[in-house]
């Protein structure tokens, strides 16, 4: 069984989207990157983010991640760490077991080079 299915599939992601995005918008370290973006489109994009981080079905490539974040000026490790932290806190809040959170963190971590365009 994949991590995505073990966590609860699409239903779990839907529950996580609101919790995660509320944390991001309240996080002074990163919220400016999301200011003024269309909330409705963001709901879908946050869902895409979580699906990817939780190993769900997606067709994103490393190249897509590079292109998708290239326009975010000054993006660095501290921002990436903040997102990782919010992801972990979201899954904890939704009572996802620790060993699954660790797996999700590892998948998200694997995108660091691409997201930060190195």
């Amino acid at each position: 069984m994949s991590l995505y299915d073990e966590i609860g599939g699409e239903a779990a992601i839907n529950a996580a989207v609101d919790v995660f995005y509320r944390k991001v918008l309240k996080d002074d370290r990163i919220k400016h990157y999301f200011d003024g973006l269309d909330m409705v489109k963001q709901a879908a994009k946050q869902k895409a983010f979580l699906t990817l981080a939780l190993g769900g079905p997606n067709n994103y490539t490393g190249e897509d991640m590079r292109k998708g974040h290239a326009h975010l000026k000054g993006l660095n490790d501290s921002h990436f760490d903040a997102v990782m932290e919010n992801l972990g806190a979201t899954l904890t809040e939704l009572n996802v077991p620790g060993h699954l959170i660790a797996q999700a963190a590892a998948i998200a971590e694997s995108t660091r080079k691409d997201v930060l365009n190195r």
Partner: peptide, 9 residues
């Protein structure tokens, strides 16, 4: 299009 997997809308 972007994600090609029914996510980004």
């Amino acid at each position: 299009s972007s994600c090609h997997s029914g996510l980004c809308q």
